[in-house]
């Protein structure tokens, strides 16, 4: 279970109406999907960037805890980690660089390297140095065929539609088999068919035990995927 405990961040500069201070506390079980909503500027992207390690928090903990500790939370979100549990709590993920956190982010756009064909974009998720085994090559082809992109492995991202690009990005996250999937409005601006196909991909990952954190404006996405919902108010996560 992923636990964030007063994960804090402070912006030195912000526009009027934006929140400068954040402290995030929540937990997320494997196979679960948690949706976070809030007006723009509320800090949704800040939350995802903190989790992924693109921003460094000023204080707080982010860690994996075992089932036993997780059960004590029950359904109540927004509670701090119990004190005195340090020996049961795994390492603080805050100390880890982005690549060691076991997380994959899918953004609204720019998820792919524009100058590299589809198969390399997927392959880099399997092997960062792109030394792919035959089995891995096969899994790329199979995966592409499964998401309806069979035969398009040589295309450049610019030659695909927006929905197809997002499918490639989600396929890569699927093949990476990380523990957490962070979705930063990945379905925006796509038509219904594309979104349903992408939801299916997310559900597959959930079924495989991946914890999903979804940031989306669209209630349809939230209804389709999320089991739990939280809202961002004044830099804090509260039950919606």
């Amino acid at each position: 279970m992923l636990c964030a405990d007063h994960l804090s961040f402070h912006y030195t500069r912000c526009d009027p109406g934006e929140t400068p201070d954040f402290a995030f506390t929540f937990h997320l079980a494997p196979g679960e999907c948690l949706a976070v909503s809030g007006p723009s500027g509320a800090g949704k992207s800040t939350l995802l960037n903190l989790l992924a390690g693109f921003l460094t928090p000023s204080a707080g903990r982010l860690c994996w805890v075992g089932e036993a500790v997780g059960e004590r939370f029950g359904e109540g979100q927004g509670e701090s980690l119990p004190k005195g549990l340090n020996e049961e709590i795994g390492e603080n993920l805050v100390e880890q660089p982005p690549w060691a956190r076991g997380m994959t982010t899918v953004f609204q756009d720019h998820n792919l390297f524009e100058h590299l064909p589809v198969w390399i974009n997927v392959g880099l998720g399997l092997a960062p140095d792109l030394k792919l085994s035959d089995a891995q090559r096969e899994s790329i082809l199979d995966g592409l065929a499964e998401v309806g992109l069979g035969g398009l492995h040589d295309r450049l991202p610019g030659e695909l539609s927006g929905g197809q690009q997002q499918r490639v990005a989600l396929l890569r996250s699927l093949l990476r088999e990380t523990r957490v999937l962070l979705l930063d409005e990945p379905f925006s601006g796509l038509d219904r068919d594309n979104r349903e196909a992408l939801w299916g991909l997310v559900r597959r990952q959930q079924a495989a035990g991946v914890a999903v954190l979804l940031v989306s404006h669209d209630p349809e996405d939230v209804d389709a995927l999320a089991q739990h919902r939280l809202q961002l108010l004044d830099g804090r996560l509260v039950t919606a």
Partner: peptide, 24 residues
């Protein structure tokens, strides 16, 4: 955007040069 992606996918060192820098 590309730097974040490369960090998350752990593309470093020689591979970073070979696949991300050299083509550009």
């Amino acid at each position: 955007a590309q730097r974040r992606l490369a960090d998350q996918l752990d593309i470093q060192g020689l591979a970073r040069f070979r696949w991300l820098l050299w083509p550009r």
